[in-house]
Design a protein around this nucleic acid. Structure first.
Lengths: 156, 156
DNA sequence: TTTTGCATGGGAATCGTTCTGGTTTACACT
DNA sequence: AGTGTAAACCAGAACGATTCCCATGCAAAA
């Protein structure tokens, strides 16, 4: 219902596919999903939605600022809800887990660099790829580890 | 000739396609190229090289550490020679120009964040997208502007 | 409730990239 | 220089992700 007004505010009709997709992306455990992931989630819910529609809707959501698209290594896009606070990403190349962090100092330095170049920044992205703690320790991913939430890592 | 030994050192046979591709990437004005760009450059030179070969060779070069692959927005990969010094990128979404910069403070903070998470970082990339000075001022790109070289922007 | 036009679904098309299979080539060893 | 062999090549087919096409469906304005 609130979703419905979210869509209207973005200039989009509140259609069933759009509401369903928004609902899926809003689930807390669904932080980072590919279009395929969203499509499968819809099928699991028994919804008859075409893959083309999923892509179309996700792109519309991106343009409307509702979701953020990331181009991780490997060439496929992943999407996450835009919940306001900007953050950067750490991706485990072994287990695929994605951690988020925000570092004000990094943001500030980026701003400075752009200023120096006379560059007007629309968006920026910082990705680190590597192996997460769980993989290093036990050879399995640390999806259950007590980190990976926004703002969890703020050194100093 | 020196290219030939570069290849051997990387454990790759010094074949004509590889030498030609290396030669193209080494031209100073060819900083950031897609596989397609490289392919077209070869055709322009009158070389009979298949696109598949270009992709294969670029991937081999990447694995050998000779070139670096970037996943910019838009889903296509761009390649640049690995000239040793790590640097980050600023991309003008209007004219496509790519500027490079290096900020030790950002690097250090990244290292810290990874450490805090117990994450072993293999690679990292930082991209800023926006509009460059030339576009803002005159509506045309600033490819000829006196910046855009590595290390040009180091605030503070 | 009727109208109107944007949204949908499914399949085909497209894009960038990788694989396949048969042929050619670089290079170590005569 | 001559030759064997593994590696590299080419063209084209295959591939996965994404977008296009268009007849039909449906949200929302009248």
């Amino acid at each position: 219902m609130s979703d419905s007004t979210d869509l209207k505010r973005a200039g989009l009709k509140a259609t069933l596919p759009r509401l369903k997709i928004l609902g899926i992306l809003e689930e807390p455990r669904a932080r980072h999903m590919t279009a395929e992931d969203v499509y499968k989630a819809l099928l699991d819910m028994g919804e008859e939605v075409g893959l083309a529609t999923v892509y179309r809707v996700l792109t519309q959501f991106e343009n409307a600022g509702l979701v953020i698209r990331h181009n991780f290594e490997g060439g496929r896009s992943v999407f996450e809800m835009n919940q306001g606070g900007h953050h950067d990403h750490v991706v485990c190349v072994e287990c695929g887990e994605v951690f988020e962090f925000y570092d004000p100092a990094i943001e500030e330095r980026q701003r400075r660099v752009a200023e120096t170049l006379g560059f007007q920044v629309d968006s920026h992205s910082l990705y680190m790829y590597g192996v997460c703690l769980g993989m290093k320790r036990e050879g399995k991913c640390s999806k259950t580890a007590a980190m990976g939430t926004r703002g969890a890592a703020e050194p100093e």
